[in-house]
Amino acid sequence: DLSALRVEEVQNVINAMQKILECPICLELIKEPVSTKCDHIFCKFCMLKLLNQKKGPSQCPLCKNDITKRSLQESTRFSQLVEELLKIICAFQLDTGLEYANSYNFAKKENNSPEHLKDEVSIIQSMGYRNRAKRLLQSEPENPSLQETSLSVQLSNLGTVRTLRTKQRIQPQRTSVYIELGSDSSEDTVNKATYCSVGDQELLQITPQGTRDEISLDSAKKAACEFSETDVTNTEHHQPSNNDLNTTEKRAAERHPEKYQGSSVSNLHVEPCGTNTHASSLQHENSSLLLTKDRMNVEKAEF
């Protein structure tokens, strides 16, 4: 173990290094160091905050020279020094078990990766560091076993998940096959086929009936047209017969005018059967003409 005197000496050296690497504005270890034209180094955030307070150039807090945003430059070497100082402080805390008085939040800088452990060898070769390295080497064999167990647990979990997924996939297939086998029997399929065939026959029977009705309507229309044509021909046949009657009536009127007047009046009210309204109107006109002729003949006879 380190003596108290040596611990104090190391602590004083760390404090001196820390004062050199402090920012003059925030009085902390410089984060993202930036250098000016006057070779003074500050935190990048502190300098941008200072420049944004005034429009135009501002003055350096140490030498009062003008500073602009374009004049600022990043210093990589200074950032490396800060990183190495942080590593020294971490090693000091691990070796002594004491917390550094002016320690900052170094938890963000710590890294437990194997590459980081290899890099620590180049920091300080001390008894405390050696003991700590031995402890780490002793704890390393235990870690692979834990990793193997965790991997086995994960693989077993994956296997159970896969088996569950396969079961879920197989179950719908089985149910679907069961439904297909038990849903419709052979008799049901035959009945469905016969039902479809009967429906098709009914459709075939319905369509000819409609065509037959249309044919019957067409035949009825044709018969009505033929009947009207026969009526017209009958009226045409009746007209010459009426003319013959008129000639006979004229002759009778010349011989017996008194008797014919009474008979002509009675004939006005008689309509021949089986004739249309057109034929009756023609008869009325003929009878009126005959009456006028008879009157003329009677007057001539009187004179």
Results as ranks from 00 to 15, higher is better:
Lys55Asn: 13
Asp39Glu: 02
Lys19Thr: 03
Ile41Val: 06
Arg212Met: 10
Glu140Ala: 03
Asp218Ala: 07
Asn15Tyr: 15
Gln18His: 08
Leu245Met: 12
Leu137Gln: 14
Phe42Val: 01
Arg162Ile: 00
Asn246Lys: 03
Ser219Ala: 05
Glu8Ala: 09
Leu137Ile: 10
Asp200Gly: 05
Gly274Cys: 12
Leu86Phe: 05
Lys49Glu: 04
Ile41Met: 08
Gly128Cys: 03
Pro57Thr: 00
Lys19Asn: 03
Gln18Glu: 15
Asn65Ile: 05
Pro257Leu: 09
Arg70Ser: 15
Phe45Val: 12
Arg77Ser: 07
Gly262Cys: 08
Ser58Ala: 13
His238Asn: 13
Arg174Trp: 13
Leu27Gln: 01
Lys293Thr: 14
Glu84Ala: 05
Glu9Lys: 02
Val232Ala: 04
Ile206Asn: 01
Ser197Ile: 11
Ser263Arg: 06
Leu203Ser: 14
Lys109Arg: 13
Val153Leu: 09
Asn267Tyr: 09
Asp200Val: 07
Arg162Gly: 08
Thr235Pro: 09
Asn276Asp: 12
Ser103Arg: 08
Cys23Tyr: 00
Ala133Ser: 02
Arg212Lys: 07
Asn131His: 15
Cys38Arg: 00
Glu258Val: 02
Pro208Thr: 08
Val161Gly: 10
Leu94Val: 07
Lys300Arg: 10
Leu94Ile: 10
Arg130Ile: 11
Gln261His: 09
Pro172His: 08
Asn297Thr: 14
Asn276Tyr: 10
Arg135Lys: 07
Ile89Ser: 05
Glu22Val: 03
Asp294Asn: 13
Arg132Cys: 01
Asp244Tyr: 06
Leu217Met: 14
Val298Leu: 08
Cys273Ser: 08
His256Asn: 09
Ser241Arg: 10
Ser113Tyr: 04
Arg174Met: 12
Val153Ala: 08
Ile20Val: 01
Leu27Val: 00
Thr36Arg: 00
Glu9Gly: 01
Gln154Lys: 13
Lys293Gln: 04
Asn102Lys: 07
Gln173Lys: 04
Ser35Phe: 15
Glu285Lys: 12
Asn15Lys: 03
Ala220Val: 10
Lys69Ile: 06
Cys225Tyr: 15
Glu302Asp: 11
Ala4Thr: 09
Asp119Tyr: 02
Tyr104Cys: 06
Glu299Gly: 05
Ser71Arg: 01
Ile30Phe: 12
Gln138Lys: 08
Asp200Asn: 13
Leu181Phe: 11
Thr96Lys: 01
Pro141Arg: 08
Glu8Gly: 07
Gln125Leu: 01
Lys54Thr: 09
Glu99Lys: 06
Phe303Ser: 14
Gln171Pro: 09
Asp213Tyr: 08
Ile123Thr: 10
Thr36Lys: 00
Ser126Cys: 06
Gln168Lys: 15
Cys273Phe: 03
Pro272Thr: 15
His269Asp: 05
Gln18Lys: 03
Tyr129Cys: 03
Gln53Arg: 01
Glu84Asp: 05
Lys31Asn: 06
Val198Ala: 09
Val82Leu: 01
Asn102Ser: 14
Pro24Ser: 01
Lys109Asn: 04
Gln125Glu: 05
Thr207Ala: 10
Ser122Tyr: 08
Gly199Arg: 06
Thr76Lys: 14
Glu271Asp: 03
Glu9Val: 00
Val7Leu: 06
Glu229Gly: 14
Thr149Ile: 05
Lys259Asn: 12
Leu136His: 15
Asp188Asn: 14
Val7Phe: 02
Glu140Asp: 07
Phe106Val: 03
Ser150Arg: 13
Leu203Phe: 10
Ser197Gly: 12
Glu140Lys: 11
Asp1Glu: 05
Lys134Asn: 15
Ser156Pro: 14
Ile25Phe: 00
Ser156Tyr: 02
Ser126Asn: 07
Met296Ile: 13
Leu21Val: 13
Ala16Asp: 07
Glu84Gly: 14
Asn157Tyr: 02
Ala16Gly: 03
Lys250Asn: 09
Cys225Phe: 11
Phe42Cys: 00
Arg295Ile: 11
Pro141Thr: 01
Ser186Tyr: 03
Ile89Phe: 05
Pro272Leu: 14
Pro33Ser: 06
Pro208Ser: 08
Gln53His: 01
Ile30Val: 14
Ser145Tyr: 02
Gln93Glu: 13
Asn157Ser: 10
Ser152Gly: 13
Arg255Trp: 04
Ser79Ile: 07
Asn234His: 03
Val190Phe: 05
Met47Lys: 04
Gly262Ser: 14
Glu214Val: 04
Leu151Arg: 09
Arg77Gly: 15
Leu291Phe: 10
Lys55Glu: 06
Glu214Gly: 14
Lys222Arg: 13
Glu229Val: 05
Gly97Ser: 03
Ser186Pro: 14
Cys90Arg: 07
Asp231Glu: 15
Asn12Lys: 08
Ala279Ser: 12
Thr235Ile: 12
Val198Met: 03
Ser126Ile: 01
Glu226Lys: 04
Pro33Ala: 02
Lys44Asn: 04
Ser219Cys: 15
Lys108Asn: 05
Thr230Pro: 04
Pro33Arg: 00
Ser280Arg: 06
Ile89Met: 11
Ser152Thr: 11
Asn191Ser: 05
Phe227Leu: 03
Ser186Phe: 11
Ile41Leu: 15
Phe45Leu: 08
Cys273Tyr: 15
Glu254Gly: 02
Ser3Phe: 11
Lys221Thr: 15
Asp39Tyr: 06
Glu120Gly: 13
Glu22Lys: 02
Lys55Ile: 07
Thr248Asn: 10
Ala301Gly: 15
Ser145Phe: 09
Ile215Thr: 11
Asn297Lys: 05
Lys37Arg: 08
Val298Ala: 00
Lys55Thr: 08
Phe106Ile: 04
Glu302Lys: 14
Arg132Leu: 04
Gly210Arg: 03
Val161Leu: 07
Tyr260Asp: 15
Ser75Ile: 15
Pro141Ser: 06
Arg169Trp: 07
Ser79Gly: 14
Ser139Arg: 11
Leu27Pro: 01
Ala220Pro: 02
Thr166Lys: 11
Cys60Trp: 00
Ser3Pro: 08
Gln261Arg: 04
Ser152Ile: 00
Asn243Tyr: 14
Arg6Gly: 02
Arg165Trp: 06
Gln93His: 08
Val10Gly: 02
Thr277Asn: 04
Gln201Leu: 12
Lys49Ile: 05
Gln80Lys: 09
Leu151Phe: 03
Gln201His: 03
Asp244Glu: 01
Tyr100Ser: 09
Met47Leu: 12
Glu99Val: 09
Leu48Met: 04
Glu32Ala: 02
Thr189Asn: 07
Arg162Ser: 15
Lys192Thr: 14
Ala224Val: 01
Ser35Ala: 06
Asp95Asn: 00
Ser79Asn: 02
Asp66Ala: 03
Ala193Glu: 14
Phe78Cys: 13
Glu202Ala: 14
Arg162Lys: 13
Leu268Ser: 15
Pro144Ala: 14
Pro257Ser: 05
Glu83Val: 05
